[in-house]
Amino acid sequence: MNAKLSLQHVQKTFTDGDRTLTVLKDVSFDIFPGEFVAIVGPSGSGKSTMLSIAGALLSPSSGKLLLDGKNIADASEKERQLIRLHQIGFIFQSSHLLPYLTVKDQLMLMTRLSKESKKDAEQRAERLLTELGLRHRLHQYPERLSGGERQRVAIARAWMNEPDLILADEPTASLDTERGQHVIEQLAQQVKQQKRAAIMVTHDERMLAYCDRVITLEDGAVS
């Protein structure tokens, strides 16, 4: 089976005046279709930088970043924008829902950006929200949703453009244990059913039981 995402000898450095700071050091790992992988490690270990590189938000200083076998490490900003729109879905610590859009419209916004047929998009939005137990919330605004419901909307939004890769950055940090477990259980289920790949950065060890594998970053390197 070919890897959905592959980091090969990735290094990331930043310049601070006359000092060079190495944040990632020769990081290599593969993520396969249907696999839900957790990234753990202490604060300052490079997790956020690694996630930004995997999400085509940052380019590595050296090494390769392969998405579906294509090296995107040196892609232009325009190319990276298209990759993020069509191939990568993001879930953040805060759901980042727009307060003036209904649940359904949060998802429809993603497809308007990609200029997809409205009819097809509406059908997929309603299917995703039904699968995540939010059918009855289609026309509600974020202020009427619980924290767990808002994160489930964020998951549905991340799936809207049928991305190859889902990246989740501390998605349960603002939730209690029960809601957090429910959100991650549903995310893991979607990954398996759709044979996508997902990476979750987390400090919450209780969520690791839902992951297929755990990668530890320490001082910028896989340990």
Results as ranks from 00 to 15, higher is better:
77 E>V: 06
107 L>Q: 06
119 K>Q: 06
16 D>K: 14
190 Q>D: 02
191 V>R: 02
24 L>D: 08
27 V>W: 03
111 T>C: 07
73 A>S: 15
175 L>M: 02
155 I>E: 01
158 A>M: 02
195 K>G: 00
39 I>Y: 05
70 K>D: 04
48 S>N: 13
159 W>P: 01
152 R>F: 00
29 F>M: 01
41 G>I: 02
157 R>S: 04
121 A>R: 11
23 V>Y: 04
189 Q>N: 03
166 I>Y: 01
11 Q>Y: 08
43 S>A: 04
127 R>T: 09
28 S>T: 14
178 E>V: 05
88 I>D: 10
204 D>Q: 11
8 Q>H: 10
83 I>C: 09
133 G>Q: 01
74 D>H: 13
155 I>C: 05
97 L>R: 06
159 W>L: 15
90 F>T: 09
202 T>I: 08
122 E>M: 10
10 V>K: 09
152 R>I: 02
14 F>P: 08
129 L>E: 06
146 S>C: 05
142 P>A: 03
198 A>K: 02
63 G>H: 12
123 Q>S: 08
91 I>C: 10
99 P>M: 10
174 S>H: 12
92 F>A: 08
48 S>V: 07
22 T>V: 09
20 T>K: 12
84 R>K: 06
104 K>G: 00
156 A>E: 05
174 S>T: 10
87 Q>P: 08
95 S>G: 06
42 P>K: 11
199 I>D: 07
44 G>K: 11
214 V>L: 07
115 K>W: 00
11 Q>R: 15
160 M>R: 06
168 A>R: 13
30 D>I: 05
88 I>R: 09
92 F>M: 11
175 L>P: 04
53 I>W: 12
116 E>T: 09
211 C>K: 11
204 D>N: 15
198 A>C: 07
194 Q>W: 01
194 Q>R: 09
16 D>Q: 15
168 A>H: 13
198 A>Y: 03
171 P>Q: 00
17 G>Y: 03
150 R>D: 00
109 L>A: 11
216 T>R: 15
52 S>C: 13
138 L>G: 06
139 H>T: 11
93 Q>M: 12
152 R>M: 01
7 L>R: 07
218 E>T: 13
195 K>R: 07
64 K>V: 00
184 I>G: 06
105 D>V: 09
221 A>N: 06
147 G>K: 02
90 F>P: 12
112 R>W: 00
107 L>S: 04
12 K>W: 01
125 A>H: 07
140 Q>F: 10
107 L>R: 07
58 L>D: 15
162 E>W: 05
199 I>A: 06
169 D>T: 13
135 R>Y: 09
99 P>R: 13
164 D>K: 15
204 D>C: 13
156 A>F: 01
184 I>E: 08
110 M>A: 14
83 I>A: 09
106 Q>T: 01
40 V>N: 03
214 V>C: 12
68 D>K: 14
98 L>E: 04
186 Q>L: 07
147 G>A: 02
16 D>I: 13
42 P>F: 02
103 V>I: 04
22 T>M: 05
113 L>T: 01
181 Q>P: 00
158 A>D: 07
